[in-house]
Design a protein around this nucleic acid. Structure first.
Length: 538
DNA sequence: AACCCGGAAGACCG
DNA sequence: ACGGTCTTCCGGGT
């Protein structure tokens, strides 16, 4: 996982963004939204900019982050003239403004030998200036919600913050430019809404984590989020973050694929929900810009609030900025959830719920989904084999289990809220068992059912592999490795554990609490999947 | 052949 | 330095 740090090594950057991809490298940016590292510290002196700024082509928004690819090209040409720089290789700048802003000085130098520093400085100035303006402005469109956050965020403080940029607004409104990025009509919406153009990845759990409570709420909703299928996003937090994710992804990447296409370019977009979104989100590249993609990121949307979206925005936006740990979207499960819960159901060609209540989903287009994931993570060589390996790791922590007998079908053992609420996998493991039950969901039902559940955290009991639960003897052996998964419901600790254990060798995980069973429920629904039986435990 | 499974090693990030 | 989360490979099974 590399997420691209802002400053990716040039090389890396390049790698990641193969031109060929549907998405533009830029897309990737979403991750690094505004927060540009570079700028950070310095207080923005607006002035400097002003000087040359005034000379900027009028068609360019004051905030480079909102520029479309065309704007970037316009800007580069302008820089060539204005600063007497050697000609830029436009092929190296097939990205929107946001993406360009995320490039580090070295990245820029690599793409434009001899002009990197100048370009970097100019961009920094422009960004700073834009930020400054924003601050002044009450709220920026962009992150509406965020705003709240904003203040909070360090960035903010620093000033670096993102820019929420007023521009965004402008963008929306006026600028066509951006539009391009956003291409999608939706974008605009998005913007409005959340604005989030963000890009950011969703804040995934982490971020969210922040609000457990939300989670709860959400949780309940959980997956369903709305329950309806569409919704998705359930969790609030999630939503938010989801938004992000989703958004991007789809588009971008897949863009290519079906859906995207389908949607029509934009299509997709607009997702309903999307409202806001962020486009960016998830990640994928999409984001903003890329023409291709439009992306509207579905993700963005996600945020549903209750329905709608949550404001995801806030956070998202700043993802990068945000100090929060962002896993944002970066986590595979989070990514998948976002796609699954895309309000507009844009990614159904890639992945779709088979049973939302139980958390069972099918990867419709393994290769395409893997590609999206690869884009999201900037691992362009990602394929289903690799992605599925990552999915298998989730077996150990009881996040997922394989639906036996059905190809490309997996089942979430925990609802999003639950996952989100758990910041670390490690915790998951620990909790696993106990936790499992998602509070919310479970709560409902389960509550009674069993359990126990334990408080999340800690409880873990370690079980020995063997023992595990004791319960049943599950032999792991018997069980396929996954068993754990398999018996989702099963979750029974035992099995899992066993399996896990195996895998892990007993790692701690085992903790299983007795409860697993309960947990299993996805949304209240108990998942049994296969094996309930297995439950031997029971 | 395509999946699916996990072990092992390593990358990257916070 | 360390743990988490993958990513990449790989051999093996179905």
């Amino acid at each position: 996982m590399k997420l691209l740090p802002l400053s990716l090594p040039p090389v890396a950057a390049m790698d990641r963004l193969p031109l060929s991809l549907p998405f533009s490298p830029t897309d990737l940016l979403w991750r690094y939204p505004l927060g540009f590292p570079a700028a950070p510290s310095q207080p923005p002196p607006m002035s400097p900019l002003l000087d040359f700024k005034t000379h900027l082509p009028t068609s360019l928004a004051s905030d480079p982050r909102v520029w479309s690819r065309e704007d970037v090209a316009t800007f580069l040409r302008w820089c060539e003239r204005e600063f007497d720089l050697p000609h830029f290789d436009m092929e190296m700048f097939q990205m929107n403004g946001k993406a360009m802003c995320l490039l580090t000085k070295s990245d820029l130098a690599e793409r434009s030998p001899g002009s990197g520093d100048v370009l970097h400085n100019v961009l920094q100035l422009l960004m700073r200036d834009a930020q400054t303006l924003q601050r002044c402005l009450p709220s920026s469109p962009v992150t509406p919600t965020s705003r709240h956050h904003y203040p909070l965020s360090p960035h903010h403080i620093t000033g670096t913050s993102h820019p929420s940029t007023p521009t965004w607004n402008n963008l929306l409104t006026s600028t066509a430019v951006t539009a391009s990025d956003f291409q999608t009509p939706s974008l605009a919406h998005l913007v409005h809404q959340g604005n989030s153009v963000t890009l950011s990845p969703a804040p995934s759990v982490d971020s969210q984590s922040g609000s457990p409570q939300h989670a709860d709420h959400n949780a309940t909703s959980s997956y369903h989020g709305g329950s309806n299928g569409s919704n998705q996003s359930s969790d609030s937090d999630e939503d938010s973050y989801q938004d992000s994710n989703s958004g991007s992804l789809p588009n971008g990447g897949g863009g290519t694929h079906h859906r995207l296409a389908a949607s029509g370019g934009s299509s997709s977009n607009s997702p309903p929900s999307t409202p806001g979104i962020n486009v960016a989100v998830p990640s994928l590249p999409q984001q903003p810009h890329s023409p291709a993609k439009e992306q509207t990121s579905p993700g963005a949307n996600f945020s549903t609030n209750g329905n709608g979206f949550r404001a995801v925005t806030g956070r998202e936006f700043f993802p990068t900025d945000t100090p929060e740990p962002n896993t944002n979207g970066r986590l595979l499960w989070d990514f998948l959830q976002q796609l699954l819960n895309d309000p507009t159901q844009r990614y159904t060609n890639y992945i779709a719920w088979k049973n939302h209540d139980t958390g069972v989903f099918k990867i419709v287009d393994p290769a395409g989904l893997a590609k999206l994931w690869g884009i999201q993570k900037n691992h362009l060589s990602m394929n289903y084999d690799k992605m599925s390996r990552a999915l298998r790791y989730y077996y150990r922590v009881n996040i997922l289990r394989k639906v036996q007998g059905e190809r490309h079908c997996y089942q979430f053992l925990r609802n999003p809220s639950e996952l989100k609420s758990i910041k670390n996998m490690s915790l998951l493991r620990q909790q696993m068992s106990p936790t499992r039950p998602t509070p919310s969901l479970q709560q409902h039902q389960q509550a009674q059912q069993q359990h126990q559940v334990s408080p999340p955290v800690a409880v873990s009991i370690k079980v020995e592999p063997d023992m595990e639960d004791g319960d049943s003897p599950i032999d792991e052996d018997l069980l396929p490795t996954d068993l754990s998964m398999e018996h989702p419901t099963d979750l029974s600790p035992s099995r899992h554990t066993a399996a896990e254990l195996r895998a892990m060798h007993c790692q701690t995980e085992v903790n299983i609490s007795a409860s697993r069973d309960s947990n299993t429920q996805y949304n209240g629904v108990k998942i049994k999947t296969d094996s309930e039986s297995t439950d031997e435990n029971k």
